[in-house]
């Protein structure tokens, strides 16, 4: 099972500013170590949902950095709304985490 994500969703006006930090090696398939080439291993699909409704459906290549960061904004959000994030990698490993929207500063 993959490591949990860190997700922070803060309300600014009626928009939730969502910052997601995932833990994933994001191997390009070209990196060499003493034992040979590290095989391709990367997140292919990322989905952000607001109260169960998909607001962003993303697809990635191996060119996204290791331990990927994703920042998105969700319109029409309120404090306490649920933001959930799901990723699926090229080995069909997946992870879903959920947070509630917090009041902004």
């Amino acid at each position: 099972m993959a490591d949990p994500m860190k997700i922070r969703a803060t309300l600014q006006g009626d928009t939730a500013d969502v910052r997601i930090l995932m833990r994933h090696p994001m191997e390009t398939g070209t990196r060499k170590t003493a034992t040979g080439v590290v095989p391709l291993h990367f997140i292919q699909s990322v989905i952000v949902q607001h109260n169960g409704r998909t607001v962003l459906d993303g697809q990635w290549s191996q060119a996204i950095s290791r331990d990927p960061f994703l920042g998105v904004r969700v319109k029409g959000a309120k404090v306490g709304d649920k933001i959930s994030v799901t990723w699926v990698d090229n080995k069909d490993d997946k992870r879903t985490d959920e947070v509630a929207v917090m009041a902004g500063a």
Binding site: T15, M26, T28, T30, V48, H50, R53, T54, V55, L56, D57, G58, Q59, W60, S61, Q62, A63, I64, S65, P68, F69, L70, G71, V72, R73, V74, K75, G76
Partner: peptide
């Protein structure tokens, strides 16, 4: 990233309720 071995890094479909903004980190 035009000169990467595989140029396309990410593609995001924005649905109703999503803002037309994305932020991430690339390898170049």
């Amino acid at each position: 990233a035009e000169k990467n071995p595989f140029p396309l890094a990410a593609s995001f479909d924005i649905m109703a309720g999503g803002d037309s903004y994305v932020s991430t980190r690339l390898k170049m």
